[in-house]
Write a protein that binds this DNA or RNA. Structure first.
Lengths: 148, 148
DNA sequence: AAGTATGTCATAGTGACAACGACACACAGA
DNA sequence: TCTGTGTGTCGTTGTCACTATGACATACTT
C-alpha cells in the first residue's frame, strides 16, 4: 500500500516556499516545479491552509506563503494535513464473526499496528521542512533564501 | 497511504493455521473465515509459500500448513512476503529537474522516509504470529491448539 | 483409478487518485 | 471605481491497483 502522492508533493511545495521565503508563489509556478497541474496544488494548499501551515494571498502578485517559520513545520504535521487513509488496511469485508479467529483477529492485531504506526509518526515528527530545505540547498549548492 | 488488505488477511490466515496446528486447512475454509474468495487466499498462500512461511499439501485431506513454528514467524516477515508497494509514494511524474527544489527534493526526503519506514518495520519485527494467536485465544477464551 | 485440493490464468467490477477545464469569488493596484 | 490576477471549488474524465469470480490444468492421497 502506497501512500498517495500528496505527502511527497506537499513537502515539495512547502520546501519551495521555504527556500524563497517572503515572496508568494503562485499555484501555477508550484505546479510547474512539481510537474503536475495547478488544481492539484490548490487542493493541497487548501488542506495546508486548513492545517495552519500556509496562507494564501489573493489578487495580483499574490500566491501561497508559509504561515509559520519552516523549522516549526514538522513532517508529521504535513502528513496529517494531507493524508486521510489509515496506514494499515484491514479486511475489505469484515471477517467471519462466528469463527474463533475471525471474531478476534482485528482486535488482536490492533495494538501492534498502532504501535508500528506510532513509531513511524515519531520519525516524521523529528524532521521539519527547514531540515528538508537545508538538505535541498546543500544538494543543489545554493543558499537560502533563494532569489529566483 | 494505505497498505493493501493482503497484510491483514495474511496474518489472519497464518493465525488460523497456528491455532489449529497440525491439521491442514483448505483454502476454501480459510476464505470462509476471512470472508473472501478462495482464489484470494490461494494468491496469498502462493506468496507465503515462496517466503517459506507456509507449505501446501495437495490431494484429499490436504490444505495449508505452517512451514515453521508460529513463534518464528514475525509480522515483518508476513509484511514483506505479501506487500509489494513502497510505504511512501512519490510524485506520479518526476518533478522538474531543472528547478532548484524539484531536482533535489526526492534525494533530500529519502533518508527521512527510510528512517520512518525502518521504525515501522522494527515494530513489526517485534511481534510474531504466536503472539497474535495467543491474543486471539485470550480474547476468544479458548486454548491452543483449537480443535474445530 | 477416482476424487480432491492447489496453483494460475483471464475477466470483470470497484474505489482512490490525479489530470483537466471551467467559473465564481476576492483582493491588489491604478 | 474598475480591471486584472490568482485562489478556491466543482464536475468530468482517465488511470491504476486491488479484489472478486469462474475456469482449468496439475499433482497428490486414498
Amino acid at each position: 500500500m502506497p501512500t498517495s502522492t500528496r505527502f511527497a508533493v506537499a513537502v515539495h511545495v512547502l520546501t519551495a516556499l521555504a527556500v524563497s521565503d517572503g515572496k508568494p508563489m503562485r499555484s501555477e509556478d508550484l505546479a510547474f516545479s512539481a510537474n503536475t497541474g495547478a488544481v492539484v496544488i490548490r487542493g493541497l494548499l487548501s488542506r495546508l491552509n486548513d492545517a495552519g501551515l500556509t496562507r494564501s494571498q489573493l489578487g495580483a502578485g499574490g500566491g501561497a506563503l508559509l504561515a509559520k517559520p519552516s523549522n516549526e513545520i514538522r513532517l508529521i504535521d504535513v502528513y496529517e494535513a494531507v493524508e486521510d487513509t489509515e496506514l494499515f488496511s484491514t479486511h475489505r469485508t469484515p471477517p467471519c464473526q462466528s469463527c474463533a479467529v475471525g471474531g478476534n483477529i482485528l482486535a488482536a492485531m490492533q495494538p501492534v499496528l498502532a504501535q508500528a504506526r506510532h513509531a513511524m509518526e515519531s520519525e516524521l515528527a523529528a524532521s521539519s521542512i527547514a531540515d528538508i530545505a537545508t538538505e535541498v540547498a546543500r544538494l543543489g549548492k545554493f543558499s537560502i533564501p533563494l532569489v529566483w
